[in-house]
């Protein structure tokens, strides 16, 4: 299901959902929920966006049914803890690689995924100041190291 151009801001969250479908369905579910909520605010009027959001909603309802015995889906407080722990685990892995001077694609992706999952946390309410700082740092690091590797420079 291609993400319409108007909903470009959530395309990476939707892709993260697809990547976690089997690995961690709870992560996949909340990434889609974020895509749904944010997508509705961005554009739910044009036919291509309505079609996309309707399909996304079908997917969410099906997932909720399939995962009805999972506390992280039925209780949002547990879901919040699950996503936050997962995001911080990604962040810590990338940060540890960074501090050890090991710069590679996987650590860039971990920084970036951590920042996307910190976006996803906003479905549960306002982000904490700490999470806002982590998100900013992770996104900046991902961009900075990506550009260094692309230009053949050593990250400082």
């Amino acid at each position: 299901m291609a993400v319409p151009a108007q909903l470009k801001a959530v395309q990476h969250h939707i892709r993260t959902a697809q990547e976690h479908e089997k690995r961690d369905p709870v992560v996949a579910y909340y990434c889609r929920l974020y895509g749904m909520q944010t997508g509705m605010k961005l554009d739910s009027k044009t036919p291509e966006c309505r079609k996309f959001l309707m399909k996304l909603m079908d997917q969410l309802e099906m997932m909720k049914k399939d995962l009805s015995d999972n506390d992280s889906i039925t209780q949002e407080l547990v879901g919040h803890a699950h996503i936050e722990n997962y995001a911080l685990k990604m962040f810590l892995y990338a940060d540890n690689e960074d501090r050890s001077g090991r710069f590679h694609k996987n650590m860039i992706k971990s920084f970036y995924t951590a920042s996307l999952l910190l976006d996803v946390l906003s479905v549960f309410g306002e982000l904490s100041e700490e999470n806002i700082q982590h998100r900013k740092y992770a996104r900046w690091k991902a961009t900075y190291i990506h550009n260094c590797l692309k230009n053949g420079e050593a990250p400082q």
Binding site: M40, S44, R50, L60, E61
Partner: peptide
């Protein structure tokens, strides 16, 4: 035709909002 398509769009938007609220156990 314009007003019909506008009301279809707003009905679908309402449907999405209602389904979202149900999904999140808000109704």
């Amino acid at each position: 035709i314009g007003s019909i398509s506008t009301s279809v769009a707003s009905a679908e938007q309402d449907e999405l909002s209602q389904r979202l609220a149900r999904l999140r156990d808000q109704i």
